[in-house]
């Protein structure tokens, strides 16, 4: 393949391989450590340690997990939490559409790879020029995040349970900070800033009038409205290597 943009089966050389593995593991460690926060916040929301660990194993997509326990912690019905989690999880579908022609997996390999299709694995592999390099980056990042995220969830949940009152340690404030950190990379785009401000304002306006969980779901309507009115593509839609935790180290 002469064109650098072409997707080829070329296997990356040893230097490229070790660079990919090093970067991917660094992202895995940084993101995995954040699982500690999820574990602690989840038991503070009233979930058991087993339920918290099941979420990290089964759902395995950070923003959705935080959303589910966040809505439940605010007193919302588990169903509103689940719907919010699924709406946030829908961005992984878009990542998949981008990654499929690059990764080119079929059958059980594709089914297994899908479980680790998340922000970080996409960010670390989407800009690779060969299938070999993309697969290596995708799997190293995805698997290291998966292992460390789940271990950290367990430690965080056990710690949170031992701590007792989450408010005394400011864990309730940590949830808002976590959502802001997840939102941050997307705020480079001005239209996204507008959507974020409108969504936050609408949600707050609905807080006194509706059941917990409803304001967040209603704010999703802002995305529908602005998306239907707008034309321009969002340049921040797919995260780059600089957007993931530890990416700006």
């Amino acid at each position: 393949m002469s064109s650098p943009a072409a997707v080829s089966e070329t296997v990356p050389d040893r230097t490229e391989r070790s660079a990919i593995i090093r970067d991917s593991l660094a992202v895995g460690v940084a993101t995995g450590a954040y699982g500690f926060g999820f574990g602690a916040v989840s038991v503070a929301a009233g979930l058991s340690i087993a339920q918290t660990c099941a979420l990290s194993l089964l759902m395995f997509t950070g923003a959705s997990q935080f959303a589910l326990v966040g809505v439940v912690a605010a007193g919302g019905a588990p169903l509103s939490g689940a719907v919010t989690a699924l709406m946030l999880g829908s961005r992984n579908t878009l990542y998949g559409l981008r990654m499929a022609p690059l990764l080119r997996w079929r059958g059980w390999r594709r089914a297994a790879a899908a479980h680790v299709l998340i922000d970080e694995s996409t960010a670390m592999s989407v800009s690779r020029t060969t299938t070999g390099a993309a697969r290596l980056a995708f799997l190293t990042t995805g698997v290291s995040v998966f292992v460390l995220w789940n271990l950290a969830t367990l430690v965080g949940a056990a710690t949170g349970e031992a701590v007792g009152d989450p408010r005394a340690f400011g864990l309730d404030a940590a949830v808002g900070a976590a959502f802001l950190a997840l939102l941050w990379p997307r705020l480079q785009d001005r239209r996204n800033v507008l959507v974020a401000v409108l969504a936050a304002a609408l949600a707050l306006a609905l807080v006194p009038a509706t059941a917990p969980g409803v304001p967040v779901l209603a704010a999703g309507g802002v995305a529908l409205l602005v998306g239907a009115l707008g034309r321009r593509q969002d340049p921040t839609e797919i995260p780059g290597p600089g957007d993931v935790a530890g990416g700006h180290r």
């Binding site: 959303a67 959507v195 998306g227």
Partner: peptide, 19 residues
């Protein structure tokens, strides 16, 4: 695509505000 890109922005912002 546009709506799917904006949904995380709207939901995360609303979650920040309500939390």
């Amino acid at each position: 695509e546009r709506v799917a890109d904006l949904i995380p922005v709207a939901l995360l912002a609303a979650l920040v505000a309500t939390q």
